[in-house]
Amino acid sequence: MPTKRPKQTTPKQPAADATRLRVRKTYKLYIGGAFPRSESGRSYPVHSAAGDLLAYVAQASRKDVRDAVVAARKAFAGWSGATAYNRGQVLYRVAEMLDGRRDQFVAQVGQAEMSTAEVAAGEVVSADAARAQVDAAVDRWVYYAGWSDKYAQIVGGTNPVAGPYFSFSLPEPTGVVGVLAPQDSSLLGLVSVLAPVLATGNTAVVIASEDRPLPAISFAEVLATSDLPPGVVNLLTGSTAELAPWLAGHRDVNALDLSGVVVADRKALQIKAAGNVKRVYAPHEPDWFADPGISRLGAFVETKTVWHPIGV
């Protein structure tokens, strides 16, 4: 057996082995299955909730948004055309990968979300709290993976019509969905908004939490190492206020999830989204640990109704 590898370290923590040079990670964007730096060359510092510098991450520009939308559009035909069963299998594979990197996520979520109150009290965030969130995130992903070949039976169905017709309605994916991920819940929140978008056959351009992006970038690595086709999820880090208007105004984006935008800022984005009549989903921030139900599964689908003549 090789020697046990040191746990992931951050700039703040001392290296596990003083004789080794620390391998610092470059946090980049995730576009079209690759991890490019921002087209603009910019980066910005990310701090832990306790105020320590964790890393510099890529700061996406509007052109990265454009590239991400192009990648998502290119991936849409393949992903939406895959069978629902196949999508479920691929999403389940993502959960397997996520589960395998649980320790890394527990560390990152802990750093990102230790509350200022806990800092003030001198309390170290309990690993249990972070672990609970990571566990919930894995379970949430599995939950939606299971729904991918079942929601159509719930959301769709046959319609009783007065005539010699067999009429049925079925949900179809809306298209490219712009997702503004929750700002506070760095992993569970992200998973809870992204999984239903994918389960219903859409492709996504995600803008991660601005101040807590590290779990999201690591999650992109999980996506890259599962069987998800390139471009189905594209993840950008940077200023939400800078990027959101470009995403909302982009006429090749079909829907917008405003979960990560405070209520006061939503109206301006909704107005921009009206340019090409995007489907906009702007729910109240829920308790992410609570049972999500299936409301998000119906958020980004278009109902197609077919009338088929019968009888004669």
């Binding site: 470009w246 105004g249 006429r251 090749d252």
Partner: peptide
């Protein structure tokens, strides 16, 4: 227009 278009247009 100041906003990006896609192949639909």
């Amino acid at each position: 227009s100041g906003s990006y278009d896609g192949p639909d247009y």
